[in-house]
Simulated scan of single mutants.
Amino acid sequence: MVMSELPFRCGMEAVVNLIGGKWKILILFHLRDGKLRFSVLRRLVGQVSEKMLSQQLKELVEDGLLRRIDHKTVPPHVEYELTAFGINFCRSLQAVCEWGAANMDKVTAIAEARTVRQNAKATLPRA
């Protein structure tokens, strides 16, 4: 089968397809400085369930962004680290991370206002 067109209309669409969702970008962010065990990643990422973290890690490994290192011990000792592809991607996130840090107060205010609006909608009487 010969493809005459790329499957994405722009680079951002390709990125969203690869790392879309709430947890993948945080997983990659936390692995930027080196290998981490599953339990450490779970604590760092936050409110992610064990099942969801496991699924997201599996997809990141399948997509070539992470490497899973199984030390074949009992109890199990498994670590995750970025591949060269993942390291290259994480370098491109640095500017986004810096923007987030510089604008954290504004982003927090926006998130709080969104929560207030959603709570107000939830308490409105239904017609």
Results as ranks from 00 to 15, higher is better:
90 C>N: 07
17 N>S: 15
52 M>H: 02
7 P>S: 00
48 V>F: 03
46 G>Y: 04
97 C>D: 14
11 G>K: 06
106 K>F: 08
54 S>F: 01
80 Y>F: 12
94 Q>D: 11
10 C>P: 04
96 V>Y: 15
88 N>T: 14
103 N>S: 09
118 Q>L: 11
32 R>A: 11
110 I>R: 10
61 V>K: 04
114 R>G: 07
38 F>Y: 02
76 P>L: 01
19 I>M: 04
27 I>T: 06
30 H>P: 00
105 D>Q: 13
75 P>I: 05
84 A>C: 09
61 V>Y: 07
120 A>D: 08
61 V>W: 04
63 D>E: 10
3 M>W: 10
61 V>Q: 08
62 E>C: 06
125 P>I: 12
110 I>V: 10
25 I>S: 14
59 E>F: 01
67 R>A: 07
29 F>A: 08
88 N>D: 13
99 W>E: 14
26 L>F: 11
40 V>I: 15
57 L>C: 03
38 F>M: 01
78 V>W: 00
12 M>V: 15
94 Q>H: 13
63 D>Y: 05
5 E>F: 07
62 E>G: 04
6 L>M: 09
25 I>C: 14
88 N>C: 13
74 V>C: 02
106 K>P: 01
5 E>A: 05
77 H>Y: 01
64 G>D: 06
68 R>I: 03
7 P>C: 04
16 V>P: 07
37 R>K: 14
72 K>M: 10
70 D>Y: 11
42 R>M: 08
85 F>E: 11
31 L>V: 01
13 E>H: 13
24 K>L: 11
5 E>T: 07
93 L>A: 10
39 S>L: 02
88 N>H: 14
63 D>F: 09
21 G>E: 06
93 L>E: 06
50 E>L: 05
124 L>D: 02
46 G>V: 02
69 I>R: 07
121 K>Y: 09
78 V>D: 01
52 M>C: 05
45 V>C: 02
19 I>F: 03
72 K>D: 04
79 E>C: 04
46 G>L: 01
38 F>K: 02
29 F>S: 06
42 R>W: 08
125 P>E: 14
10 C>S: 12
73 T>L: 13
21 G>C: 10
56 Q>G: 02
56 Q>T: 04
45 V>S: 00
106 K>A: 12
73 T>C: 12
39 S>R: 05
55 Q>M: 12
